[in-house]
Simulated assay, not measured.
Amino acid sequence: MKALQGVEGHVEWLDEPSPTCDVGQVRIRVAAAGLNRADLLQRAGLYPPPPGASAVLGLECSGVISEVGPGASSWQVGDRVCALLAGGGMAEEVVVDARHVLPVPEGVSLLEAAALPEVYSTAWLNLFQLAGLKPGEKVLLHAGASGVGSAAIQLCKAFGSPCWVSVGSAQRLAYCEDLGAQGGVVRTDGIEGLRDFGPFDVILDPVGGDYAALDLKLLALDGRWVLIGLMGGREAQLDLAQVLGKRIQLLGSTLRSRNDQFKADLFSDLSQHVWPLFAEGRLSPQLAKTFPIKDAEAAFAELATNQIAGKLVLVIDESLT
């Protein structure tokens, strides 16, 4: 099979041995794969896959099941699905734990479905499972127009928690408001303007760095600060008295390195609480643009501009879409 590999800071569509479909696994003929910031980091040699995971790029994909391994009888050959992966999604086929697969939601195309697993898993895990977000609590989403931000805005709206965002442009702020955000700030205008909307019960932060000190100031009593990325840097100076005085919880969170059972439990939760909302029209994929796999380098370059609202998807097999 062919697969996308990160090679010395760029990507190449190379021959790769087909993986074996083992007990409890399914093989997916890949239609499309979502592109995430983790793929940028892996291409640059900064985010290696967890031990035992495929070195092929891609943390999520959509496609059609072509083989069902022993013990994966909940699926059938021909099922249209999307999957969460620790790696391997940007390939002609992928083998995955059958518990990390969900059906393509009603009314959603395979192209759109490729943009769902990673961002909705991340948003649900960090806001609702780890931070314990409750209806009526106020949320701040940094990088609100990102793929995770787009999913998080919709989930906050669906479950009754008003949210605000920080974004990179007025156009992306308007995009977030159209999705359901109450408002927010453009970071070039100064993120201190977020004080006008706080305090916040939960902050979802993929930035870190210089945002960290302000996050502490913006959090309410018993606030939860969930750090999921370091786009702004890994070092910060914090006033720890605020952590004590406000009883703040700082939660560091990554999903890719979680074990199979954790991801299976997460997907079970998504299946019950989140996936039905697509059929109801309360959630929708935010597919910004697609690229054929031969133009993967252009897709990576576009994601690196930080100008995207929503998700980018690579088309692997156009005949399936």
Score class of each variant (00 low, 15 high):
residue 121 S to V: 05
residue 155 L to P: 04
residue 305 T to K: 06
residue 256 R to G: 00
residue 290 T to P: 09
residue 293 I to L: 15
residue 78 G to R: 08
residue 90 M to T: 06
residue 278 F to S: 02
residue 116 L to Q: 11
residue 34 G to F: 06
residue 236 A to I: 06
residue 285 P to W: 14
residue 261 Q to I: 09
residue 146 S to F: 07
residue 169 S to V: 07
residue 33 A to F: 02
residue 276 P to A: 04
residue 255 L to R: 02
residue 218 L to W: 04
residue 174 A to I: 02
residue 73 S to V: 01
residue 299 A to G: 12
residue 206 P to Y: 10
residue 137 E to P: 07
residue 228 I to W: 05
residue 319 S to V: 03
residue 291 F to Q: 01
residue 204 L to T: 06
residue 286 Q to H: 06
residue 233 G to E: 10
residue 127 L to Y: 07
residue 182 Q to R: 15
residue 257 S to M: 02
residue 97 D to S: 14
residue 218 L to E: 02
residue 286 Q to W: 11
residue 10 H to P: 00
residue 249 Q to I: 00
residue 92 E to Q: 14
residue 223 G to R: 01
residue 317 D to T: 10
residue 237 Q to N: 13
residue 217 K to E: 14
residue 73 S to R: 15
residue 140 L to Q: 10
residue 65 I to V: 14
residue 255 L to Y: 02
residue 207 V to Q: 10
residue 266 L to D: 12
residue 205 D to M: 09
residue 60 E to G: 07
residue 181 A to M: 02
residue 19 P to F: 12
residue 194 L to T: 10
residue 18 S to A: 15
residue 188 T to Q: 14
residue 114 A to T: 01
residue 134 K to I: 00
residue 3 A to E: 04
residue 212 A to V: 09
residue 303 L to H: 07
residue 279 A to T: 01
residue 135 P to Y: 04
residue 274 V to M: 05
residue 292 P to I: 05
residue 73 S to G: 13
residue 211 Y to L: 00
residue 112 E to K: 09
residue 120 Y to R: 09
residue 13 W to V: 10
residue 192 E to L: 10
residue 50 P to Q: 10
residue 32 A to K: 01
residue 23 V to Y: 13
residue 19 P to T: 06
residue 167 V to W: 01
residue 97 D to H: 11
residue 32 A to E: 03
residue 238 L to C: 05
residue 5 Q to I: 15
residue 28 I to M: 09
residue 198 G to C: 09
residue 231 M to R: 14
residue 97 D to V: 10
